[in-house]
Every structure is written in C-alpha cells, then in structure tokens.
Amino acid sequence: MTAALLLDLALALSAVAVALWTVAAKRAFEAIVGFIAFGLLLSLAWVRLGTVDVALTEAAVGAGAGGVLLLGASARLGTRALAEAKDVPILPLRVATGLLCALLSGALGWAILSLPTPAPSLAPLAAANLAATELGNPVSGVLLAWRAMDTLLEAVALVLAVIGVWSVAGDDAWGGIPGPAQPPRRDPALRLAARILPPIGVVIGVHIVWTGADAPGGAFQGGTVLAAMWVLAWMAGLVRPPAVSSRKMRTWVVTGPLVFIAIGLLGCFLADGFLAYPAAFTKPLILVVEAALTFSIAVALVLLLIGPPEAAS
C-alpha cells in the first residue's frame, strides 16, 4: 500500500512540476516539450486511477497528436511571437493573478476532498446495461450504446472542426491540397521510418479498435494511431492528401457520423427509439458503427493535424 502511495505522490508531484515548467518556460519549444511530458505523466495517472481507456486516449490524442500539432505550429511560427512586450501584464498584476489562481486551486482541492461518501455512481446501472450490448468493456458500452448521443455529437464535432480549420484557408488557396505546400522534412531516416512503421502501426490501430469491445481500447484511440501512421508518411513526403475540393475525401469525413445516424434512425423503427439497437443485432450494429467511426475519425484527425490548404492545387 505504501509503495502505491509513493508512486501516486511521485506521479502527482511530477505532473504539477511539469505543468509549472510548461507555464514558466522561456521559449515556446521548451513549453511544448513540457506539455508532451505532462500528457504522458497524466496518462500514467489515468492508469493509477483505473481508467486505462482514458490513459490510451490521453497518450494518443493529448500527448501524441496534440504534441505534434503544437510542435509543428511552433516551428512554423519561428522565433517571432505574435505578441509584444507591452502585452505582458506588469509584475504586481501577475502576482495578484497568481494569488487568485492559488486561491481557486485551494478552494477546488478542498471541494474535491470533501465530496460526499459514499460517492454517487452510475457503475451498477452501466453494468446492468452492459449485458444487452454483448460488450465486455464498460466504457465502450457507455460510449456506443448507453450514451451513444454523446459519441455521435463528438464525431460531428470533429467534422465541424475540419470545416472550421479549412475555413481559415486563404481565398487564393481554397480548393488546394490541405497542409503546407511542401512537406516539412525529407531526410532519409524519416523516410525509412515512414516505410517501416505504418504496417505495424496499422495493425496496432486496428487491434486497439477490435479489442476495445472487451478490453481497454476503442474507435478514438485506434483511429488516432491510424491517423498518426498516415501523418508520418505525409511528413516524409511519401503520400499526399486529395484536394479539399475532392468530393471523395469529404465523403470519407462524414461517413462515420452518417452511418451512426442511419443506424440510430433504424432504431426508431426497429427498437425503442433514436440510437437504440434492435436486441437481435446489437453487437453487429455496434461493430459497423465502430468501424465507420474509426475510419472517419482517422481521416478527420489527419486533416486537423495537417491544417488548411496554403496553395491552390
């Protein structure tokens, strides 16, 4: 018990220290490296909290994809910042802000520690509903059946984000290939890695989705791994995405949500209501939804990572 407590304390203190570093670092690059380390420490904390599904998501989306996105942005911004010295608050103001933030943290910490015991829990309800879905992983059961509405809206949010990112493209670049005109790097080591890793990564990604039915994993975690493999090949200059005007690619992005909505509507006629599954086909329908979602999530994440088009095709 003591060893576990020490581990928890070490993890918690490291996470707080790295967070302080991320805020205090002089240069943006150092701060981003701190942020990636923060994400990995946080995913270890998720494992300690018994939430391995969240740990996978944090490592893949938060630290992995988020780190790539921010490092890329920092490299493209260069040394010039978009702010001037006069925009930085004066010292007394910073001290006052720090004190108020510390006060907020203290109050929140106190509130969290004085939450009522026994804690309210939906776990028994989730367990009761899990049997009907034939899934072994309660988190997947919640995501795809019980709270399917949240998951559907999340998938739609990714589509909206792609539209948002594309909409900041310049008028001259509209309709072009997404991303910067030239892939950022072309060194041999990267090209070799981009040829060797994707076959392994694709298998791992599909495995994470498949195993998500009964063990930690699922469409979002697996989709992120698949997206990462494609982005790696893109960074090495081996593949190019279709132009944003391509009808085919737009279809790919919306396939997942559309399949989800279609099966949800089917539930209105064959089961209890929107997003309810007919009892005889629950597991097969969930698999269809997961496969379509994984594909569209991977495509959307790739498009979000490489950004809007910057030159007409």
Binding site: L49, G50, T51, D53, V54, T57, E58, V61, G62, L115, T117, A119, P120, S121, L122, A123, P124, A126, A127, P138, V139, G141, V142, L143, W146, R147, D150, T151, E154, A157, L158, G218, F220, I297
Partner: peptide, 24 residues
Amino acid sequence: ARRGAGAGFDGDPVPQAIIITGIV
C-alpha cells in the same frame, strides 16, 4: 470516476466515457 468504483469496475464508466469525449 474512481470514487464511483463499483459493480466490479475499477471506476464509474460514465465519467470515463465523458473524459474520452472531452479529450477528443
């Protein structure tokens, strides 16, 4: 989620699912 552990799970699965949605 951890405080709501029960029914044989290490944590309440509903907040866990919400966190995954939130991270994405």
